[in-house]
Design a protein around this nucleic acid. Sequence first.
DNA 1: TTCCATTATGTTATCGATAACATGTTATCG
DNA 2: CGATAACATGTTATCGATAACATAATGGAA
Lengths: 347, 347
Amino acid sequence: MTQPERKKRITIKDVAHAAGVSTQTVSRVMNKFAYVSDETRQRVEVVVEQLGYRPSTLARSLIQQRSFTIGVVTFGLKYIGPSRTLNGIADMADELGYMLLMKELVDLDTESIEEVIESLLARQVDGILWAVPEIGDNRNWLTDRLASIPVPVLFLTMEPRANVPSIATDNYSGAVMATQHLLECGYKNIGHISGPMDWWEAKERKRGWSDTLIKAGLDASENRCAEGNWSSASGEQAFLQLLQTFPTLDAVFVANDQMALSVLREAHRRKIKVPEQLAVAGFDGIPESAYFYPSLTTVFQNPQMLGEQSIQYIVEMIQARQENRSFITQSRFIQPNLTVRESTSLV
Amino acid sequence: MTQPERKKRITIKDVAHAAGVSTQTVSRVMNKFAYVSDETRQRVEVVVEQLGYRPSTLARSLIQQRSFTIGVVTFGLKYIGPSRTLNGIADMADELGYMLLMKELVDLDTESIEEVIESLLARQVDGILWAVPEIGDNRNWLTDRLASIPVPVLFLTMEPRANVPSIATDNYSGAVMATQHLLECGYKNIGHISGPMDWWEAKERKRGWSDTLIKAGLDASENRCAEGNWSSASGEQAFLQLLQTFPTLDAVFVANDQMALSVLREAHRRKIKVPEQLAVAGFDGIPESAYFYPSLTTVFQNPQMLGEQSIQYIVEMIQARQENRSFITQSRFIQPNLTVRESTSLV
DNA sequence: TTCCATTATGTTATCGATAACATGTTATCG
DNA sequence: CGATAACATGTTATCGATAACATAATGGAA
């Protein structure tokens, strides 16, 4: 049983009193300000140590109008990609001396978005990382609202827009790599299983596939593509559909590894040999993909790095604003790379 | 290019001035205090709306000594389990009106732990959720330090200790279920691939396996177990080792699904039929496990729910302390359940 | 009619720190 | 040796809100 005993917080006044100096002097010692005599400094430091004094970041944030806190708005944390990005975000934030105030979006409607933004601003965050995938028109609010947010906002995984800072994996170029690779392996009838088509990332991956085929003089018509929703279950459905609409299929570029997993399984069941009769390439490069049977060729993206770079980027923005410098708004891209494994090449 | 234009924050003073009342009255309106005349209330509300005033949670936290913020300390976010737990944490926190201040532990040494705790306390969190798996002696600090932390601390995934609130999945009983199931299917030579043995969860799962076998009068000696580190790669290694030390193996309980994945693959390669010649059961119940080939029997734990309940628990603790009630410290457990699929039963 | 509870609002203190300014003491230099 | 810069420290104002207390008007109950 825990007794509800309460110790009062040790404040700067307690220290000042115990050391026989003013609070300002204690503050100077804590912030390593130069003009403090060695003698005083030591005396104060001893008291700080004895009392176990730790300054209240909260109070400091209030007076300095700066919290060294970044608001992170996430969506779909239950998926592994976003959560690994968050990992990168957390690590880099730590390294640069920032804390993270987290909000997971439950709905994507404008009201909840407004509420989330307000609650972050009310807590004086120095910047906001919008780590929510772009789906449908869920970026419309941005046009009206962005200018009136008094701190920098950085968008992850968004279609580049003028005057809006963003950072994303280059999904298009990843898809091109994968499709190109299938072509180089000699496959000609290359289908695609896409993600949900209202997701920007899904569109980009599909565009990479179709552009590459068209450029090679091949067909990329709609019957050669089926839509999933990222889940393995939907991947299975989409694959079955594709086998119907595109029977001569000899290779398939699947928009994520989870869906590719069920393509591999269904191929097994139907005794379709991978890669001899059907090559399969995925996207994401989840660690398990190396242990699929057969191991999966996939476009490896580095969500961890995406997270790290996004913190670096927003901290640059915060510092620029702090120092009243102007700042060039960019859309940054991170290049993925292709990992070739058994599912597309005969070892 | 973004112009470094800065709008001044609208404060309670601005509202008070514009509405011709005192700040106290504005505060009363914002907090729905009763003794305000309808006329005044409306006047203030109009001004609030016009100016777009939002109270500073920061300032409020300072005076009220209460931030409605919970510190969450995580470790291993890059793994899917912890990140889904975080998802549950985030959702429930939102529902109960709390924000999350996040810190990912990089090292597990005492210094970094101390630093993390201090930085959370300096930001006036109302409670701390220690979502770090128990590994080796990384809970030793707790004995000395816990009592001196002025806010409630709840530990996730920890061996129950007297007077320390904790919440965890019941790994032991999950392991018992899986092993029991294998026994019921008629397998007699049941091996185990464990997680890293300094993890509490790994120990519990192994204990569930060995206890069940011993109770059934079967052998659970060391040569029937191999140790992995949760990764698919290590699972493969462990499986190869097990095939050597325990050649008569006809079933294996694997401590997580990722490792089970590579067991399935290696079995394919060696033309060992699953489940006819070798039954495989996993642990975790990741969504993909339903799409392994064959689909994997696994112990389903609900990390999302773990997260939700942990927030509920700590909020109870916070409220108890707030109201100066005493509170019964418990170790809570969440029961997992077995999902039977193809890898252990002939459909 | 007087008194006190209820309602309505304002004033001052406070949370824990730093900013801005003020003042006194030492060095330093021409 | 006096002016001036550098050092050392203290005092007061401030960040944006609420707590605690004070004051005044209203409206029944005694």
